[in-house]
Simulated scan of single mutants.
Amino acid sequence: MTDVRQIRVIGVGVGGPGQLTLDAVAALKELDVVLVADKGEGLAQLVDARRALLETHRPAPGGGTAVRVVQVPDPRRGPDPQETASYLEGVRSWHEARVDAYAATLDSLEPHLVVGFLVWGDPALYDSILRVVRALGERTPVAVRTVPGVTALSALAAAHDEVLHAIGEPVHVTTGRRLVREWRPGLGTVVVMLDGQLRCRDLLAARPETADLELLWGACLGLPQQRLARGRLGDVLDDVAAARAQLREEHGWVMDVYALRPAPARSAAPPAAPASTTGEVAP
């Protein structure tokens, strides 16, 4: 009889150990091994953050974690081309290389061990691991259970004590590379993820009227280095760019998310707030 590999794909929120749901904590207790993508020098804190989650929820009696953490070298991605077809082909090639890397690692592990993937945010939203696990299942029998997690969208809204959408209005979720060509009045709140280039600057240059949009921005949400900013896009964009650059310089990486929405229709709009060094939001 062929052994079936047990795999848990667990959403762990966007940084803080307190963001795990009770279901996620229960799933962690089933794990023997956690596979973590090793993205190279400068991104070791991403591995350390996952170790901190395990030390909180699966501590070993003598310190550390009761779960073995195996780092898997993550294949490099090429630059993102502008052409959609080229971009999709590049992502597919990267996914295939990840499948090869994880398959080789799984082959080296005892078949009875339960393997976990700890996914930043939620596995269903702008993360590739479920596609990778599905491809692994085409090579070897696997039984997968997925546990949802706190998304960057909900963490951003909570950090700013805000509802993302106006009453009865939509929320449009997209990526930085699609923002300029997709934005239009009437989309409602636009949440932008995976934007390493802060493409809202390109949007502002292409559509000057977007200067009046309200920007809600958050970086490293839930972590000690969390930074927040909000205000009129045309007023706070430079502060956000500077804060983002500072985080990258200090920590070697930065994960951020932001929302653009029509300016609040109230008599006294909140003043523009510079990016906070404490994680607090100006009133």
Rank of each mutant, 00 (worst) to 15 (best):
A101D: 07
E96W: 04
R77E: 02
E89M: 10
S93P: 03
G90M: 02
R92K: 13
T84W: 06
Q82H: 11
S108F: 07
T84S: 06
D100R: 13
G90V: 04
L109F: 11
Q71V: 03
R92T: 13
R92S: 14
E89C: 02
R77I: 01
R76Y: 01
P73S: 05
A104F: 10
Q71E: 12
D74H: 05
V99K: 11
R98V: 12
S93G: 14
H112V: 15
L113R: 15
V69K: 05
H95N: 06
R98T: 04
A103W: 08
G90W: 01
V114L: 12
A101I: 05
T84N: 03
E89Y: 00
E110G: 14
W94G: 03
V115K: 10
L109T: 10
V70C: 02
E110N: 11
S108A: 15
P79R: 06
H112A: 15
T105P: 05
A101S: 12
A104T: 13
G90A: 06
A85M: 06
R92D: 15
E83P: 03
A97V: 06
L113F: 15
D107Q: 15
R77N: 00
V69G: 02
E110P: 09
A104L: 13
A97I: 08
Q82E: 09
S108C: 10
A104Q: 14
P75D: 01
R76I: 04
D107E: 15
Q82D: 09
W94T: 01
D107T: 13
R98D: 02
H95D: 01
D74C: 11
D100V: 11
A101Q: 11
Q71W: 00
P73C: 02
A103M: 09
Q82W: 07
Q82M: 09
G90S: 07
V99Q: 06
A85Y: 00
V99N: 05
Q82V: 13
L113V: 13
A97C: 09
T84A: 10
S93M: 12
E89W: 02
L88I: 07
A97T: 07
V70E: 04
P81L: 07
Q71A: 04
V114N: 07
T105F: 03
E89A: 14
D74Q: 10
T105L: 07
Q71N: 00
L109D: 07
W94S: 01
P81A: 12
S86I: 06
Y87R: 13
A101H: 09
E89I: 04
A103S: 14
V99R: 13
L113P: 06
E83H: 12
Q82S: 13
R92H: 12
P75S: 04
E83W: 08
V91F: 12
G90T: 05
V69W: 02
P111N: 11
R98H: 08
A103F: 10
V91E: 10
V114S: 11
A104P: 08
D80Q: 07
A104G: 15
L113E: 14
W94D: 00
D80S: 09
G90E: 01
G78R: 06
V69H: 02
L106D: 08
P79T: 05
V70R: 06
P73F: 00
L113C: 11
D80K: 05
Q82F: 08
L88P: 04
H112F: 14
V70K: 04
E89F: 01
D80M: 09
D100Y: 01
R76A: 11
A97L: 09
L106F: 12
R77C: 00
P75W: 00
L106P: 05
T105M: 10
S108R: 15
V91C: 06
D74I: 04
V91G: 05
